[in-house]
């Protein structure tokens, strides 16, 4: 009796301890979410005498979409290439998930790149590989078995609504389809950070809209942090004022912000001559007095 009395509290102790660990786990998970997905700290970069980035600092929070606006050659694409480690900055720091990647070697970057997806301007599909092989590329490189690969490739192609093109070659696809395949390829392996480099440039408005919807879907339904480089104002309009949700019949629908919620997970930064001249919400951007920004958003960027 005595022994059982003694044992009793011990059992409870173990249980509470377990519960406490779970609590800590949750508590630890939360600060993790506060850690920014991407952070630039006073980054400088120049090619020969040309200054591309001149003291750029910004953060992309987890689950946030950062829209980078600016004229061509303003350092937008360079920013993305720096995050991927395809380029190295002259000075400053770049952090991915709190990890300082500034001086990582190519070998160390390979590991960091596993959690990133990149959508290139023209898709940058491998010409010699079919759509299936393109999307499966990352998995093939990792030596995943073919059955899993096929399942994953089909899931990704369904996500971009292109499952019927699985056996085609890139040369047989239209510009918009090529970019959607590029998106599918970038999303294999469920990256937590996705970067879009002018994904809608040169596309017709409905196709451009589809690409934006994919980005919205990733942001709202898949909890992906992303950088969306563009110079098209309607992209900004879609991304900063619509959200994706699933309706009662399980379909993904896009709704305007306003009545039920206000989007706080999308922000805009604007580059000019390697510097950030604006950072904030789209509403603030529209109200700005800066003559350069006013010209830019009215479509006369000179």
């Amino acid at each position: 009796m005595l022994s059982s009395e003694l044992e009793q509290p011990e059992v409870i102790d173990a249980e509470t301890e377990l519960a406490a660990t779970a609590d800590i786990q949750e508590a630890v998970d939360e600060p993790d979410r506060i850690l920014p997905a991407i952070e630039f700290r006073d980054v400088h970069l120049s090619f020969d005498d040309l200054k591309i980035l001149n003291g750029v600092s910004f953060t992309v929070r987890r689950g946030e979409t950062k829209i980078i606006l600016g004229r061509s050659g303003g350092g937008k694409s360079t920013t993305i290439r720096l995050i991927l480690g395809l380029l190295k900055p002259d000075s400053g720091q770049i952090l991915v998930d709190g990890e300082d990647i500034t001086h990582y070697t190519e070998q160390e970057m390979m590991r960091v790149r596993q959690k990133m997806g990149m959508v290139f301007q023209e898709g940058a599909l491998f010409d010699s590989l079919s759509v299936y092989e393109n999307v499966a590329y990352r998995l093939h490189e990792q030596g995943v078995d073919e059955e899993t690969v096929e399942k994953e490739v089909r899931r990704m192609l369904r996500f971009v609504d292109l499952e019927e093109a699985i056996d085609k070659m890139p040369s047989e696809l239209s510009g918009g389809m090529r970019r959607r395949v590029g998106i599918a390829r970038a999303l294999v392996g469920d990256p937590t950070i996705v970067m879009f480099d002018e994904p809608t440039a040169g596309l017709d408005p409905p196709t451009a809209r589809t690409i934006c919807e994919l980005a919205i879907k990733l942001r709202d339904l898949e909890d992906v942090s992303s950088i969306f480089v563009t110079h098209e104002m309607n992209n900004l309009e879609y991304l900063s004022s619509e959200y994706a949700t699933v309706n009662d019949s399980g379909e993904v629908v896009y709704e305007m912000e306003g009545k039920y919620l206000c989007l706080i997970n999308t922000e805009v930064i604007m580059f000019r001559d390697g510097k950030i001249i604006f950072s904030g919400k789209d509403e603030q951007l529209k109200k700005t007095e800066d003559p350069y920004i006013r010209k830019f958003i009215r479509g006369k960027s000179d």
Partner: peptide, 8 residues
């Protein structure tokens, strides 16, 4: 670039 971005 795409190849490097995909970890190869």
């Amino acid at each position: 670039d795409a190849m490097r971005a995909l970890g190869t």
